[in-house]
């Protein structure tokens, strides 16, 4: 009977998974195996994140904001404080009002959030044929089915999913065919291809490398504490494992007095 109850619980968990699958419209998203951040001991590769940030800055940032990330957060990527200060200073932000009551422009500080490409959503829509490029801070958690890595798989697949449409498929004006996008018609033109970003560290300048790097970076922006979470989890598991064993032994001992 115990087994049956656990079976029911499992079935229930399964049904939740199904719900998410149904919502994604039955497109098979590839399950990439080369992530560094999945699994119990997953970690971020700082070099990869830096490359991903470069791809974001040089390509994605043209249209997409990253509003939950402040320059100071980039320390997680292995940049020094001075590097971050220098980087922030290349952006300008509106501050104020000053004593004269005027708003003014100043170079960004490390405490500022990364400024987006548009002043507001309306401006973003006008510049993109009516479509709103979503903020990317949480994109890898806002896609997929809730399982860790599923949103990252989706984002990466999407970036690699620009192909020519199958025969008989008409793509609407201003839309692009993507085999992983729900409905297969996406307003974003293919952003990446071999050689568009020059890496300083000698990594291959290929589409596949770009998509992996930028998706890893966006996984970090969505879940900056991922590594910390998994490390803490391991300690908690060791502690709980001891608690399970010793509370079981104690229980056995106490109950052995009964006859």
């Amino acid at each position: 009977m115990h087994i049956r109850i656990y079976g029911l619980a499992l079935l229930l968990a399964f049904s939740i998974n199904q719900a998410a699958d149904a919502a994604s419209g039955h497109i098979d998203i590839p399950k990439y195996k080369d992530w560094t951040f999945t699994g119990v001991t997953g970690t971020f590769d700082k070099h990869e994140l830096q490359r991903g940030f470069q791809v974001y800055r040089e390509v994605c940032a043209t249209c997409h904001s990253l509003k939950y990330i402040a320059f100071r957060n980039l320390e997680d990527l292995g940049y020094t404080e001075n590097e971050i200060k220098a980087l922030a200073a290349t952006y300008s932000v509106i501050d104020g009002p000053n004593d004269a009551g005027d708003m003014f422009e100043r170079p960004a500080r490390t405490s500022d959030h990364i400024p987006g490409p548009y002043a507001n959503d309306q401006q973003a829509r006008v510049a993109n044929g009516g479509a709103l490029p979503p903020d990317l801070s949480l994109i890898t958690k806002a896609r997929g089915n809730g399982l860790e890595g599923s949103g990252s798989n989706y984002v990466r697949a999407l970036l690699e999913g620009y192909t020519s449409p199958p025969a008989g498929f008409t793509v609407m004006n201003g839309m692009y065919y993507n085999k992983y996008f729900p409905g297969h018609q996406i307003a974003m033109p293919n952003p990446l291809s071999d050689g568009v970003v020059s890496y300083a560290d000698g990594s291959p300048e290929t589409l596949v490398q770009y998509t992996k790097d930028v998706t890893a970076f966006l996984t970090w922006t969505a879940e900056p504490h991922l590594q910390r979470r998994k490390e803490t989890g391991l300690k908690v598991f060791v502690y709980l494992a001891f608690l399970v064993v010793f509370s079981y032994l104690a229980k056995k001992k106490v109950w052995s007095k009964l006859h």
Binding site: A20, L138, A142, G146, L147, E148, G233, L240
Partner: peptide
């Protein structure tokens, strides 16, 4: 142990991605 499994290794599985 089960609870911690969700918190530390699949914290968003029981929620819905759309809520991000």
């Amino acid at each position: 142990l089960v609870f911690a499994g969700f918190i530390f290794y699949q914290p968003n599985y029981l929620g819905h991605p759309d809520n991000y």
